[in-house]
Amino acid sequence: MAERIAFDGSLYFPEAVEAAAAAYAEHAQIVVIPEGSAVIAVISDVVEHDPQLIQHAFCNHVLHETISRRRQAAVEEGG
């Protein structure tokens, strides 16, 4: 069963969702769909692990990517 997770565009970078989806490609099938100001990640076909665990870990990864990218952008802006 596929799980849809919405990442609000004002809180998460779409590129961060894409990067996390690529990083989790070996654990599940993740399709990223832009939808208005949000980005939807549809997670299905989870391999080996508990699907809920993968969903939570995926969310953490997206947040980590977003924070890292924001900080990098701030450093580049300042420099």
Binding site: A6, D8, L11, Y12, H56, A57, C59, N60, L63, H64
Partner: peptide
């Protein structure tokens, strides 16, 4: 992030 799963909306 290393202590729990965090999700923002």
């Amino acid at each position: 992030l290393d202590r729990c799963y965090v999700y923002l909306s």
